[in-house]
Nucleic acid binder design. Sequence first.
DNA 1: CGCTGGTTGCGCACGCTGTTCGCATGAAGG
DNA 2: CCTTCATGCGAACAGCGTGCGCAACCAGCG
Lengths: 244, 244
Amino acid sequence: MTRSTKKAAPIPSVWAREQRRSDQPALSREAIVREAIAMLDADGIEALSMRKLGARLNAGATSLYRHVATKDELMELAVDEVAAEIHVPPADSPDWRAAVTEAAGSFRTTALRHPWLTLVLGQAGLAYLGPNYMSFSERLAALFTAAGFPEPSRAIETVFSYVMGMSNAEAAWLTTVARSGETEADFIARLMPAAQRAAADHTHLAIPHAEVEEATTDPVALRDMKFAYGLEVVLDGLALRLPK
Amino acid sequence: MTRSTKKAAPIPSVWAREQRRSDQPALSREAIVREAIAMLDADGIEALSMRKLGARLNAGATSLYRHVATKDELMELAVDEVAAEIHVPPADSPDWRAAVTEAAGSFRTTALRHPWLTLVLGQAGLAYLGPNYMSFSERLAALFTAAGFPEPSRAIETVFSYVMGMSNAEAAWLTTVARSGETEADFIARLMPAAQRAAADHTHLAIPHAEVEEATTDPVALRDMKFAYGLEVVLDGLALRLPK
DNA sequence: CGCTGGTTGCGCACGCTGTTCGCATGAAGG
DNA sequence: CCTTCATGCGAACAGCGTGCGCAACCAGCG
């Protein structure tokens, strides 16, 4: 509590005036974005408000607007900041499939670490031209070009759509789990009876016993496997289109 | 204007009392959901508020809560209503690839007709157990099972993730275009110089001339082609996993 | 040293949101 | 006619993003 901003005196008095404390780093765009990301990660996308964010920075809500034009702009900054965490192997990697798998996995783990990422990305389309996001795109393009694809952007859109769709669904699921306050396995175990009952009328929706087993013991591994499976499918399909 | 709800008299007078008009279908869950979908389609997801929705139905905002528990529930109802528009061919179709292509295309056109669909779907994970959505899942499962996939849910998740990711990106793009008030081709033509300039520093992001040409003349066909391309890739990859 | 101009923080206020509560109305059943 | 019940809704609450104008500070200059 470096600054005690009690509202104390409702009467405007020169004497009872708070001193401007210039001890801490004050307010900066970097600090604001960093704290916003922390709040988004911790409490989800709808828990972030300019007022709460200001409070966490020992500042008033409207002070933020000196460094950030609008809340939407703040979200764009947060997205671009987080985009820096995505690792894309260099274009001269010997094995393009391994390299793409690495990039896709890196995007996924980033999206799961920041479950709001895909939501914000989906809401604003291609309006994100932040430097980190552009360099991410650039590296992807280099990778697919080096792999020998005649139309790399087609291949990129295909694999990226899959990765995005899967990550988005997983992030939404993890958000639901987090809100329940239980572990993923416990949450699944609790919901399973209801799911079985709902699937009872629909012949083809039955869940195999083995999957129920794994979902309640190691749900993380199950999700990892599902993601890897679909990615292999997409890469197999793409490999067919590589000129020999 | 069947009911003129002027606030007229601030003094509660028995004489100046509005007659309860029971001429129109009044208020019903169906009517509310239908009108909500209309508003969502017309003005986007953030333009829908309970007050505006009530006004469109010649009703007060809080009256809606007699038929709908909360706004989130209303969105779930809207999603399920719209899910009925998705067409999935019967399981005994002779050509499974054609059938899946049809289903995927139907999902995409539905998602583009209601650009808020993927947003809502992504925000709430698997919490959607509406009857229409379940029957959609059931039909998909039947289709992939009949096609001969040993683990149909793997295949479904793969192709659905792709379709979802692609549709979401397209819907976001179309929303941006719609907000500009221009046609898609005009919008692209206007943004192209900026895009070229932004890509100038990034060697691998150059956009082929042919694509620029088509994007500014027939953007719809270009998007159709991109979607079809990626879908073929995924289906090729899946076909490799079909037991011969 | 004093003055001045620009930057930064912020209290206030506006219009909007989802939702709760309690009351008033009309229809239905006895 | 009286009672019960479902329905509509006005008022109110807490919260939101954000524009405005003032107060406090810092840098540079005379």
